[in-house]
Design a protein around this nucleic acid. Structure first.
Lengths: 135, 135
DNA sequence: AACAGTATGTAATAATATAACGTTTTAAAG
DNA sequence: CTTTAAAACGTTATATTATTACATACTGTT
């Protein structure tokens, strides 16, 4: 395995699965991933879930909780994702990562009244995308 | 003229399940609910999921997406929940509904760069609660 | 009473995720 | 180069979460 600069080198299964998610235009579910990588030798759910867990952990992908599906991180230098926001069209199901400095600053600075310390947040917006509004 | 808050009357199963969630101090999962209401005649998953769907729809409960669990809405007059935020302790698993005017205003006003119109959002903060920080 | 909409009960099954095991590979230190 | 510990792997089985499908019953109008 070739070790790149500061880049963490992914294992074989992790790379196969990241490649698949990366080139997908939509969030992929674990079993969709499984079916699509069986020809590459990944045959069982734990192999997929383990790679997904790791990829999430190192910030290469994010889980869309409301859909149990995974998307590649668009912020190429995002290593550990602690501030994620997504827009989800309820009509066409398109999902996009929202990257807005004001938003992430506001939420990262947000302080709980009850004294909790936040390490991480996940925000999901639902609505209609430009195209679906017209229809 | 008095404008009545059109109270929706809940069905039997909906009421049983709402009561259970309401008096719970923690988010409840669908099958935990099922086991706890079997003595009341609710015997199968679809009965639980149908009631949950309806209760979510009318804003009586919220789903904590990252936990596949349900909590009662604390805003007693919240009819249709379109702006939800929760704090989740990663140590003790305590979940609280965050109600902060600034936060909900900021997020409700948030405009997507890509022209999406948002109807609703769900925000989940993760961290350590007061008590767990001390330990 | 007739109708539409909502809710119910039930069986079967689909979809999502993890446990538990032993083995192999990797990276780094001696 | 060998040792070693951590990480990743492969495999089987099973746990957990959620839905489909269909028949029946209840509720509130007209």
């Amino acid at each position: 395995m070739i070790k790149m600069n500061k880049e963490r080198s992914l294992s074989k299964n992790q790379q196969i699965i990241l490649d698949l998610i990366d080139k997908s235009s939509e969030p992929l579910k674990a079993y969709t991933i499984l079916f699509n990588v069986q020809k590459k030798g990944i045959k069982a759910p734990p192999q997929v879930y383990r790679a997904l867990d790791k990829l999430v952990e190192i910030g290469k992908i994010h889980k869309i909780e409301s859909k149990n599906a995974f998307v590649a991180c668009k912020n190429s230098n995002c290593e550990i994702s602690k501030a994620t926001a997504f827009s989800i069209c309820e009509s066409c199901e398109e999902v996009d990562e929202v990257s807005d400095t004001k938003l992430s600053k506001f939420l990262s600075k947000f302080n709980d009244k009850k004294g909790m310390t936040f390490k991480r947040f996940n925000l999901e917006f639902f609505g209609l995308c430009k195209r679906c509004k017209i229809k």
